[in-house]
Amino acid sequence: MLCPVLCGLSTDVKEGENGNYTLIRDVEDNQLGMFDQPLPCFGCGIGWFSLLLGFVFPLMWYYATILYFGNYYHKDPRERAGLAANAIAALILTISVLIAVAAILL
């Protein structure tokens, strides 16, 4: 019984008897088309592509971290997970480099 309410369909008893439903929302204002386009970088998004490329060129992790903290994912929320993964990878790399430098110098 929740589907007509969640789908934006009218649940009026008179219209339900006829088997006809009326849309409550505006048909011309369709929000679904915003995410129909594939993500950039071979369809996996900038975040995940930077994570994979970062294993060869680690500065990509820092680039994607800057995008993450710059709220780039507000343009497309599907990018948020990949950009967050880059921030974690950049943090791990920074800590490991600091430990390695401390071990060499001490």
Rank of each mutant, 00 (worst) to 15 (best):
M60E: 11
L32E: 14
A100C: 03
T65F: 01
G16K: 05
A103W: 02
F42C: 13
I88E: 11
D12Y: 01
C7A: 14
C3N: 06
L83E: 04
I99F: 13
V13H: 09
K75Q: 15
F57E: 14
I104N: 08
R80A: 09
T94V: 02
Y68T: 00
P38M: 03
F42G: 07
S50F: 12
A87C: 10
R78A: 09
G43S: 05
T65E: 11
L6A: 11
I88C: 02
Y73F: 13
C41D: 13
L52F: 08
L59E: 11
G43L: 04
Y68H: 15
A85L: 07
V101D: 04
L53Y: 06
F69P: 00
V101G: 00
R80I: 02
L32F: 14
Y63C: 08
F49A: 15
E79S: 00
P58E: 07
K14C: 00
Q37V: 08
H74A: 08
V27N: 00
R80D: 02
T65P: 00
N71L: 11
L91N: 03
W61L: 02
V13D: 10
C7F: 06
F69E: 05
G70I: 04
D76L: 05
R80L: 11
P58T: 07
G45N: 08
F49N: 09
G16T: 06
I46Y: 06
L51G: 00
I92N: 11
C7L: 14
F35Y: 15
G19K: 05
N18S: 15
D29V: 08
A103N: 08
V97I: 14
M34L: 14
V101R: 12
L23M: 09
I24K: 14
N30L: 03
L83D: 02
V97Q: 07
M60T: 14
L23F: 10
T22Y: 01
V27T: 04
G70D: 05
G43P: 05
L23S: 10
G54H: 01
K14H: 07
L105V: 15
G8M: 03
S50M: 13
L83T: 02
I66Q: 07
A103K: 11
Y73R: 00
S10C: 15
G70P: 01
D12R: 12
D12W: 02
V5A: 14
I46N: 01
A81V: 10
V13F: 03
A81E: 15
L83R: 02
M34S: 09
D36H: 03
L32N: 10
G54F: 00
A100I: 01
A102Y: 10
Y72D: 07
